[in-house]
Amino acid sequence: MTTIEVDEDEHGSWTVFRVQGELDLVTSPLIRRRVHDAVAGGRHDLVIDLSAVRFCDSSGVGVLIASRRLLRSCGGRLRLILPEEERDGHVGRVLSALGVRRLFDVYEDVPEAIAGVTGVPGRSAP
């Protein structure tokens, strides 16, 4: 059975989703709904922590891309958490293989993402 858990925290203007489990065809609608609910609630700066995601398929990547597009359309920002040791893990390999890793601002952890710290290895340009 495919499972996913999403914890949500507020850090100033940033909403942080900590995702754990599998991001796939079955679970990606939950992430899409959570992102849409955040935007509808006026929260346009979003961090998605993927460090505990053990599997991601093209549906999961599609939700990340759609989230990026939605947030950009309303002047918001999307930042991903993918620690360096995980960048060559499953999620990092999927993002790279599909050629979309460069679309995202990738950070080591939540404090760096919220602060917008630059110079993190593997981080794409804003």
Rank of each mutant, 00 (worst) to 15 (best):
R93Y: 00
R87G: 09
D24G: 09
R101T: 05
R77Y: 03
R102A: 15
L46M: 04
V61P: 01
S28C: 12
A66K: 12
P83S: 10
V120Q: 12
L95K: 04
G42W: 01
P111M: 01
Y107S: 09
I65Y: 02
L82G: 05
H11P: 02
S28I: 00
A125Q: 12
L46G: 01
P111E: 07
G41A: 12
S73D: 14
V120N: 11
E8D: 10
R18I: 04
D57K: 00
G99F: 07
V16Y: 06
D7G: 11
E22W: 02
V47L: 04
R32D: 14
P126Y: 01
I81T: 07
L80N: 03
V120A: 09
R102I: 11
V26P: 00
I31N: 02
D105N: 10
Y107A: 07
C74K: 08
L103G: 03
G89P: 06
V94N: 03
R77S: 14
G119D: 06
A97Y: 03
D88N: 15
S13F: 01
A40S: 14
S51A: 12
H44C: 09
T27A: 11
W14R: 08
G99R: 10
G41T: 04
L30D: 14
S67T: 13
I48T: 08
R68L: 13
W14T: 04
P126E: 04
R102N: 15
P29Y: 03
F55W: 07
R43I: 06
D24S: 08
G122R: 09
G12C: 08
L71N: 03
S51C: 10
D88R: 15
E5L: 02
H90E: 14
I81L: 09
L64S: 07
R43E: 09
R101Q: 13
S67Y: 05
A40G: 11
E5W: 00
E10L: 10
R101D: 10
R18Y: 00
W14G: 05
Q20G: 07
R18V: 12
L71D: 03
E5V: 02
G60K: 02
F104A: 02
R93F: 00
V63F: 02
D109A: 14
L70G: 06
E8T: 15
P126A: 06
L82Q: 06
H36C: 09
V61W: 02
V106F: 02
R72Q: 13
S96H: 11
A97L: 13
V16M: 09
S67E: 09
L25A: 15
R123V: 01
R18A: 14
C56G: 01
R93V: 08
D24L: 06
G75C: 09
I4N: 07
H11R: 13
G21D: 10
P121E: 04
P121K: 04
F17Q: 10
G60A: 09
R123W: 04
R77N: 13
V26K: 05
L46F: 01
G60V: 05
V106K: 03
H11G: 00
L98G: 02
L78Y: 05
V47R: 03
G89I: 08
L25H: 13
L25D: 08
T27G: 12
